[in-house]
Design a binder for these strands. Structure first.
Length: 741
DNA sequence: CGTCTTCTAAACATGC
DNA sequence: AGCATGTTTAGAAGAC
């Protein structure tokens, strides 16, 4: 509440209308502004400065989030181009004026959309980390300056905190400090030791306030994210690209996990949470009943344009209020964590754990790049031994470490919420793009990354291996017209009711690669896969270790691989049985255990050519990407716009190369398919055409093998989509249109 | 407009 | 009888 009030002035500045430019201006001048504020306003304490800095940073983060949240729907994001801040992938989401969500969906496959979101977050994370570092350094300088001005009163002996130890270093290295904002150069006449003493005293005095502030921030973020989530849900349903009535102010309050990283640095300023709690007679882990008086405060953060009342300055919060605030926080922490994390707790925790350990080194999770990774520490350690020593001395089991652990738990919790939010947003996006807009589907299938991952592993082990594997994985038959499955064919966009998915088979879709790429998506999203029953059944059977499955096993495969097939079981099971019986390619074999189903590849290949009918027109249309031209144009524009400045050209180059490569391959594949068709169609189905046809089919398998063995996780998906040409390939599948002409 | 393919639904048979 | 499995038919729909 206080945070919002404190940032209100910032938010209402003209520059805040543009989130990114606001960020950039804050990033460039935030520190200086703070400095000059202190010069002109003697009432502002260093703590105010600190908080102002934090709020500026958080505001910037919110605006990032805002951009993210409104990126798809914002009708005008031209101003983004003006931003000097480079937000690589997120820009792809910020240029929606080029493509509607529906087009986006047609253009991008589910994992691509998912990856875009994730890439965006990852990049935001990086940028915000850098930004925060910058901010913090400025902050330290200002703090020191302010504290020097305030005088030296260091009398109490306070145990230094590593975070402030860093300041010591900085102070020692900066005997003269420039107060940029005022333009005055201040020469510090005091010794660093004096300053440190003062700082530490200040730190102790501020400890409780800091802690309250941090705790409150966390809770604020939870509230905000929940609110944003709700807004997003509504926005995805209600907000169309042409509408600009996005509750921007409320969305600006969105927080991102990066905020929490900043929190950590600030939390390091808190001397002891336990001590604070002793003083306040509070315990974060207990649920206080005295929360009714703050019920209004709970709600208020969710109200756009209505920042928290009475939150003019968190620094001036009286102790009593802080105590009550603690109560409120602790009670709400319980609430939010219990209520909102439940459905996602498993997967979300996995994810957050994963990301938290992103930078772990092989030696010690808390030691990397010569730095102690203890939250807020960053102490430099030459080697492992020194680090261990440091760890034992500085981060021993004491009040401070315990408190930090608690905060870290909250950080994780927050990340979980964030993940849940993003997951749900993804679900909403996918649902919106796949289903009829009038039929918003409930997300009654929570993500379960744990099970998904384990399943994927197991499945990858059991993948068919009998088929020959051409050495060139690039030979994976990807053609421009294969966007049907890879990009979720338009028919599948409306995944309710009868669906014609002939595109997938017709275009010799590499179901395996598509499925491998979108495996996680289909497992979790209630989206109909753009494959025929026959191709799915065949895939399931071929995926089996001995290439045979009982009917029940096929059922299980369907339900396991596709969330969509976890409902309406009677319908699709009937269809499966129907397909098994109908298609000659499925052979029933009496086994000892009973009957199993196998695939007659020859029959399966026989079955496919007629669909092509060898029509030159069809082939031509396919090659020219008929029907996708306009989309391609817009998508290309959007992609170029988003990628050029964002993907740092390397990824773009890769994808361009990949697309060209794929284009070539795709073209070849089409040609070969045509050739196959002609052979099968006009000539007698001799051995060689069928072998050729089989060969073509076989070309799909390597991708299947490769990609299904890839580690699957959200983070992995990000990496895959960031780095693997195979994934960019999908994004580029639409591009060849013009290049081919 | 006809053909092909796919999907859905349903009826029916068989075996446990 | 109920269920799982398997076969067959019919109709609708999309693509060509």
């Amino acid at each position: 509440m206080m945070v919002e009030s404190a940032t209100e002035s910032i938010r209402t500045t003209p520059s805040s209308q543009n989130g990114v430019s606001s960020l950039s201006s804050q990033s460039d001048g935030g520190g200086r502004e703070g400095g000059s504020n202190c010069d002109t306003n003697g009432e502002i304490s260093p703590v105010d400065l600190l908080h102002l800095q934090q709020q500026q940073a958080l505001q910037a983060a919110r605006q990032f989030i805002l951009q993210q949240a409104t990126g798809l729907n914002s009708p005008s994001s031209n101003e983004l181009k003006q931003s000097p801040v480079q937000v690589p992938v997120s820009m792809a989401m910020m240029t929606p004026q080029m493509i509607t969500p529906q087009q986006m969906q047609q253009i991008l496959s589910p994992p691509q959309l998912q990856a875009l979101l994730q890439q965006q977050q990852a990049l935001m994370l990086q940028q915000l980390q850098e930004y925060y570092k910058k901010q913090q350094e400025q902050l330290h300088l200002q703090l020191l300056t302010q504290q020097q001005q305030a005088g030296k009163q260091a009398k109490e002996e306070i145990r230094p905190i590593s975070h402030w130890g860093n300041i010591k270093k900085r102070v020692a290295g900066n005997s003269d400090l420039t107060q940029a904002g005022s333009g005055r150069r201040i020469f510090i006449t005091t010794t660093p030791t004096d300053l440190i003493g003062y700082i530490e005293k200040q730190q102790q005095q501020l400890g409780n306030k800091q802690l309250a502030f941090q705790q409150q921030l966390i809770q604020m973020q939870q509230l905000q994210q929940q609110h944003i989530l709700n807004l997003q849900r509504q926005g995805l349903v209600n907000l169309q690209p042409g509408q600009g009535a996005v509750p921007i102010q409320s969305l600006q309050q969105a927080m991102c996990p990066t905020d929490l990283q900043q929190l950590w640095k600030d939390v390091a300023c808190v001397q002891s949470t336990e001590e604070a709690m002793k003083h306040e007679g509070l315990d974060l882990t207990t649920n206080s009943s005295n929360t009714t008086s703050y019920s209004a405060s709970k709600v208020s953060p969710q109200i756009p344009h209505h920042p928290l009342p009475n939150g003019q300055n968190s620094v001036h919060t009286p102790k009593r209020d802080r105590a009550r605030l603690f109560e409120w926080i602790s009670s709400f922490t319980k609430e939010s964590s219990d209520e909102h994390l439940m459905p996602y707790s498993k997967g979300a925790h996995l994810q957050s754990t994963h990301s938290t350990h992103e930078e772990h080194t092989a030696s010690h999770p808390l030691f990397g790049h010569g730095e102690c990774k203890w939250p807020g520490c960053e102490a430099l350690c030459e080697d492992m031994g020194q680090f261990i020593k440091h760890l034992n001395s500085e981060h021993a089991l004491d009040d401070r470490s315990t408190a930090q652990c608690r905060v870290q738990m909250q950080v994780v919790q927050q990340l979980e919420i964030q993940l849940a939010k993003e997951s749900e947003r993804l679900q909403a996006m996918m649902t919106h793009l796949h289903m009829r807009p009038s039929e918003p589907k409930p997300f009654n299938q929570p993500l379960n990354l744990a099970s998904s991952m384990s399943l994927s592993k197991r499945e990858s082990e059991g993948f068919p291996e009998g088929l020959p594997h051409p050495p060139t994985s690039a030979a994976t038959p990807i053609t421009p017209m294969r966007q049907g499955p890879s990009v979720i064919s338009s028919s599948s966009l409306h995944g309710v009711g009868p669906i014609r998915r002939r595109n997938s088979d017709k275009f010799c879709t590499p179901i395996a690669s598509e499925l491998a790429q979108n495996c996680e998506f289909y497992k979790n999203a209630d989206v109909r896969p753009p494959f025929t029953y026959a191709s799915l059944i065949r895939h399931a059977i071929l995926e089996a270790p001995d290439r045979q499955l009982t009917l029940n096993e096929i059922y299980n495969w369907f339900t396991r691989m596709f969330a969509y097939f976890r409902r309406n079981t009677a319908t699709w099971k009937n269809a499966v049985r129907h397909n098994l019986s109908l298609h000659k390619c499925f052979v029933r074999v009496e086994n000892v255990k009973g009957a199993v189903w196998t695939v007659d590849e020859v029959e399966y290949q026989k079955r496919r050519p007629p669909k092509m009918t060898g029509s030159p027109t069809l082939v031509k249309n396919m090659i020219s990407g008929l029907g996708f031209g306009s989309l391609n144009a817009s998508y290309q524009a959007a992609l170029a716009e988003s990628s050029l400045g964002l993907l740092n050209s390397s990824t773009l180059m890769n994808s361009t190369g990949a697309s060209l490569n794929m284009l070539h391959v795709g073209h070849d594949d089409v040609s070969s398919t045509v050739e196959q068709v002609n052979s099968n169609g006009s000539c007698s189905p001799g051995l060689s055409p069928q072998q050729y046809g089989h060969q073509i089919h076989v070309k799909e398998e390597p991708a299947e093998m490769e990609e299904d063995c890839r580690p699957v996780s959200l983070m992995a998906a990000v990496n895959q989509n960031l780095s693997m040409p195979g994934d960019e390939r999908d994004m580029e599948e639409e591009l060849p249109t013009e290049e081919l002409e």
